[in-house]
Write a protein that binds this DNA or RNA. Structure first.
Lengths: 127, 127
DNA sequence: TGGTTAATTAGCTGATCGGTAAACTATCGC
DNA sequence: GCGATAGTTTACCGATCAGCTAATTAACCA
C-alpha cells in the first residue's frame, strides 16, 4: 500500500476486523486482550491489526502497568470523512434531478463540473 | 483484502492513483486513455485500477464505439461516508470540551459512551 | 526469587497487490 | 478487407499482507 497518510487510513479501514476493533473502541478505551476476545484469531494477529490502526493514526496506545490500553483517535477518521465529503454532491439530491435531466435529453451541463480542484489537492499525480 | 463491500470500497480508496482517477472523474465522464494520460504508468495498470474501482462500485463503465467511458458513481462513496460518519462525534466539538473535562479531572462519564450499536451493525465480528 | 499475565517481536507461509510486456479483441475509417 | 485506435486479458515478478507458532519483553504478585 502507498505510504501517504490518506492511503494508510483507507487501507486500515479496508478490513472488517479492524473496523470491528474501531467499533469496539467507540464504546471506550480498552485492552488488547479484550479487543481480541471476540475474534477467532490469535493475539499476535490482533497486535498487528492494532499496529496498522496506530500507524494510520486511527488509534493511540497508552500504558497502564502490563496493559496497553487502546483508544480511538478521531483525527484520522476526520481526514477520511473530509476527503469523501468532497464528493458529497455525487450522491446528494442530484440523483433524481440529474437523472431526470439526463433522461430528458439534456446535454452534459456544467452542473456536474465540480469545484475544479476540490478533490485531492495534495494528491500527487505520479508518485 | 476482505470480500465485503465496505472493505472493497475502502481498499479501492487506499491508493493515490485510484483516488486521482476519481478526482478526474469528478470533472465528468471520460475515456480510459484520458484517465491514464497523467500517470507514468502503462495502460494495463490503469485498466486494473479501473477494475478495482468498478468492483467496489465507485465507477461504472459504458460503451461508445471503441471507447469505454468511465463515470463516477456516488453510491459507494456514500456508503463510505455513512460508515465514517458514525464516528463523527469523535472529532466534532468534543475535542476541546472533553479534553478540558479530562484535564479538570472528571471521571470517565457517559459522555464518551457512544450510541451503543452505532458502528457496524452489519460488521460480522468473526468472518 | 520465581511464576503468571499482558502484549510484542521474529520468522515462516500462502495469498493478494501493483506493476510490466506481450498478445488479443473490438470498433472505426478508408 | 486492412490498418489504426482503444482497451482488455494473460502470464509473470517482486513486494506487501494476513495469519500462524514460538520466543521474548515487561510488569505484577506471592
Amino acid at each position: 500500500m502507498a505510504a501517504d497518510h490518506l492511503s494508510l487510513i483507507f487501507g486500515a479501514l479496508a478490513d472488517p476486523t479492524r473496523r470491528a476493533i474501531l467499533a469496539r473502541l467507540a464504546d471506550g478505551e480498552t485492552t488488547v486482550n479484550e479487543l481480541a476476545s471476540p475474534f477467532d484469531m490469535t493475539l499476535p494477529a490482533i497486535s498487528k491489526h492494532l499496529k496498522v490502526l496506530e500507524r494510520a493514526g486511527l488509534i493511540s496506545r497508552g500504558r497502564d502497568a502490563q496493559w496497553r490500553p487502546c483508544r480511538l483517535e478521531g483525527g484520522a477518521l476526520r481526514e477520511a470523512s473530509d476527503w469523501v465529503g468532497r464528493y458529497r454532491r455525487f450522491w446528494e439530491s442530484s440523483y433524481d434531478e440529474l437523472e431526470a435531466l439526463i433522461e430528458a435529453g439534456a446535454p452534459a451541463t456544467g452542473a456536474e463540473a465540480p469545484a475544479a480542484d476540490a478533490p485531492a489537492p495534495t494528491e500527487t499525480i505520479t508518485p
